[in-house]
Computed example of a mutant assay.
Amino acid sequence: MAGTVPPAQPPPGPRLGPLQGPRPWRRRLNPLRRPTDRFQARIGLGLLLAVLVVAPVAGVVVAELAHRHYADTARHQTLTRHETSATLTEDVPRHPEPGSDEARLARYPAEVRLTTADGRTATTRAEVPPGLSAGSQVRIWVTADGEASEPPLTREQVRSRSMGCALLAAVGTVLTGAAAHAVTCHVVRRRNLAAWERAWAETAPRWTTSG
């Protein structure tokens, strides 16, 4: 109808800025959330952050220490071992699949005779290719005493072993954090059960009706 006065409207409220509106990510208060639940969540978050920080650091530190150790070992082996010729004193068994890739990589223990650095004749057992007959010449690595040994560690072996130690350190850190979290959850769960039993012991008599 013309001339009708519209009903009064409430005054407009203040306009909210982009940072003043509702925030869906804000945690809502849960009346059933216990203090131990908050404690457990904080411990879990703390352990996660600690593992994310400590694991890489532990890996780098252990890799450096392991590299120094294996590099020193390789240098010592280079100084105390050398490659020499030796003579087989017995026949070496043949491989079941001669000519195969496995046969080319296979090694069998056999007795060999060699001359040490000081001129002595010595015998030792070394890993040699299969199928050789007595009297054959082989190249082996020996110590200064004439004992057969492995060749010195190569740079690739030093690097791979150092990286393996670093990986083990990082995985160990993660497993330690997981174990600490599991122990914490177990302790909190036992405390919750004990608190629930005490609360039930106080509440149960009120629910019991006399006959």
Results as ranks from 00 to 15, higher is better:
Pro31Arg: 07
Val158Trp: 02
Gln9Cys: 02
Tyr70Ile: 06
Gly135Tyr: 14
Pro18Val: 03
Met1Ile: 02
Leu48Glu: 09
Ala74Val: 06
Gly172His: 02
Glu111Val: 03
Val5Phe: 00
Ala122Met: 11
Ala50Asp: 10
Leu52Glu: 13
Thr89Met: 10
Arg28Ile: 07
Ala169Phe: 06
Gly99Thr: 07
Arg23Gly: 05
Asp118Ser: 14
Ala182Tyr: 01
Arg139Gln: 14
Pro129Phe: 06
Pro56Trp: 03
Leu193Arg: 15
Trp25Thr: 10
His69Met: 05
Ala194Lys: 14
Gly119Asp: 01
Val57Arg: 07
Pro129Thr: 13
Trp207Ala: 11
Leu168Asp: 03
Ala103Lys: 01
Ala122Phe: 05
Pro205Glu: 11
Ala86Trp: 07
Met163Asp: 13
Ala148Lys: 14
Ala58Cys: 10
Arg206Ala: 12
Thr84Ile: 05
Thr115Phe: 15
Gly164Lys: 05
Arg107Asn: 10
Tyr108Ser: 13
Ala50His: 04
Val92Phe: 09
Arg191Asp: 10
Leu88Arg: 08
Arg191Leu: 06
Ala194Met: 07
Thr203Ala: 15
Arg120Ile: 05
Cys185Ala: 10
Pro130Gly: 01
Gln40Gly: 08
Thr73Ala: 11
Gln40Lys: 01
Thr143Trp: 01
Gly44Ser: 15
Arg15Ile: 09
Pro56Lys: 06
Thr89Asn: 11
Arg198Ala: 14
Pro98Trp: 04
Leu114Cys: 08
Tyr70Cys: 08
Asn192Asp: 05
Trp207Cys: 11
Arg28Pro: 08
Thr173Glu: 00
His69Thr: 15
His69Leu: 04
Val128Lys: 00
Pro12Ile: 10
Leu167Lys: 00
Arg159Tyr: 04
Asp145Cys: 00
Thr208Val: 12
Thr154Trp: 11
Gly3Pro: 12
Val187Asn: 09
Val142Gln: 02
Pro14His: 01
Leu16Val: 08
Thr121Pro: 01
Ala169Lys: 02
Gly119Leu: 06
His82Val: 12
Ser136Cys: 09
Asn30Phe: 01
Thr84His: 04
Gly211Lys: 13
Pro152Ala: 00
Leu48Met: 04
His67Pro: 03
Phe39Thr: 06
Arg159Thr: 09
Ala55Pro: 05
Val187Gln: 11
Glu97Asp: 11
Ala201Pro: 13
Gly17Thr: 14
Met163Arg: 08
Glu150Met: 08
Thr36Ala: 05
His181Met: 08
Leu88Ser: 14
Leu49Phe: 06
Arg190Glu: 06
Ser136Gln: 01
Ala182Ile: 10
Arg15Thr: 10
Val171Met: 07
Arg27Cys: 01
Arg94Met: 07
Ala110Ile: 02
Thr208Phe: 04
Thr87Pro: 07
Asp91Glu: 07
Thr143Val: 14
Thr115Leu: 13
Ser160Phe: 05
